[in-house]
């Protein structure tokens, strides 16, 4: 029973945050662009999210006649589910989590790979050249960045000697992994942005070239699922960064651990928005170049050095 409450609690919190991010992002972007952002609906425009939700629920949910219907409907669901599932292994505090799995990190990596299906299928089912191009780009980009996303975490795993996220956090009681694993952190951050295809890595939905990429043909709540999925992804990556590199819920004890966890997560979410506000989008080939030619050698080197140091210290 308690288990169900926790799951429900996690889902509620996560979805609320993801929805709330819509407002947060728009306000923050406006802040950094010397504007106001949504400020008309409710205090500080807070109810904008509600208004948007009402709008999106009542929009015509149109399925193009030329689309592959079944796949078209399933695709956005896969994205939502794969991301939401991953939240199961996040330890929000030492006692508040869904699943204390000893292969937590692998579970995350596996799930994030599943997310690609959603985009590939969505783009394919739309039966539209822009959607297809978008999804091809997305799959290439995600597969590429997944390689060294996984590798970038190997340093953390080596140092904590575990795939269990709770144990990884515990292992940081002495020192946050961000310091010894700075390269791993940077690469994970970049890969995380690419994984959620946020600006500057939003090449799959580059609106200047591909209308809206893989979700061009989506409308109504199906589009909404892609949209919310993106924010869920941002939240997920932020929580993971916090968990893996910034000591999770750990922090001075005058505030509860949950606060620290959320505080750190919020910081990274804001950082994601800041990236969007400040960086232009690279070209597709630049993106692949950067991944394969710089990041991959870098993480391999990181693993090598980390391993060497660990061996030396033993």
């Amino acid at each position: 029973m308690e288990y169900i409450f926790i799951i429900a609690g996690v889902l509620l919190i996560v979805l609320t945050i993801a929805a709330g991010l819509i407002w947060v992002e728009r306000r923050l972007l406006a802040l950094w662009q010397d504007r106001y952002g949504p400020n008309r609906v409710g205090p500080f425009g807070l109810f904008q999210v509600l208004a948007d939700m009402i709008k999106i629920f009542f929009k015509e949910d149109w399925i193009p006649p030329f689309a592959d219907k079944a796949v078209f409907v399933i695709a956005p669901g896969i994205l939502m589910i794969s991301i939401l599932l991953t939240f199961a292994i996040i330890p929000f505090t030492d006692s508040f989590f869904v699943l204390d799995s000893n292969i937590g990190l692998l579970f995350f990596l596996g799930n994030s790979s599943l997310g690609v299906y959603s985009i590939v299928l969505g783009g394919w089912a739309s039966n539209n050249k822009y959607s297809l191009l978008g999804s091809i780009r997305a799959s290439a980009q995600m597969l590429t960045y997944e390689v060294f996303m996984g590798l970038s975490l190997m340093g953390v795993v080596m140092m904590s000697d575990s795939f269990n996220l709770r144990e990884i956090v515990e292992a940081q009681r002495g020192m946050w992994f961000v310091f010894p694993q700075f390269i791993g952190f940077v690469v994970f951050l970049i890969a995380g942005v690419a994984e959620t295809h946020r600006t500057p890595f939003d090449i799959p939905e580059a609106e200047g070239e591909l209308v809206a990429g893989y979700h061009s043909e989506y409308s109504g709540m199906k589009f909404g699922m892609f949209f919310v999925g993106e924010y869920l992804g941002v939240t997920l990556i932020s929580t993971l960064i916090v968990t893996l590199f910034f000591g999770g819920w750990l922090g001075p004890s005058f505030l509860p651990p949950a606060f620290w966890f959320f505080f750190k997560t919020a910081f990274f979410i804001c950082f994601f928005v800041l990236l969007r506000a400040s960086l232009p989008r690279p070209r597709y080939d630049q993106l692949m170049d950067f991944g394969w030619k710089i990041l991959l050698p870098l993480v391999l080197l990181n693993i090598l050095v980390t391993g060497a140091i660990i061996l030396y210290l033993q």
């Binding site: 802040l31 950094w32 662009q33 010397d34 504007r35 106001y36 800041l274 990236l275 506000a277 400040s278 960086l279």
Partner: peptide
């Protein structure tokens, strides 16, 4: 890139045009 991020961040303290 870092400079851009920093400069953009500094805009948080600018006066709004709107």
């Amino acid at each position: 890139i870092l400079r851009s991020i920093w400069l953009t961040f500094l805009h948080a303290f600018h006066k709004r045009e709107t």
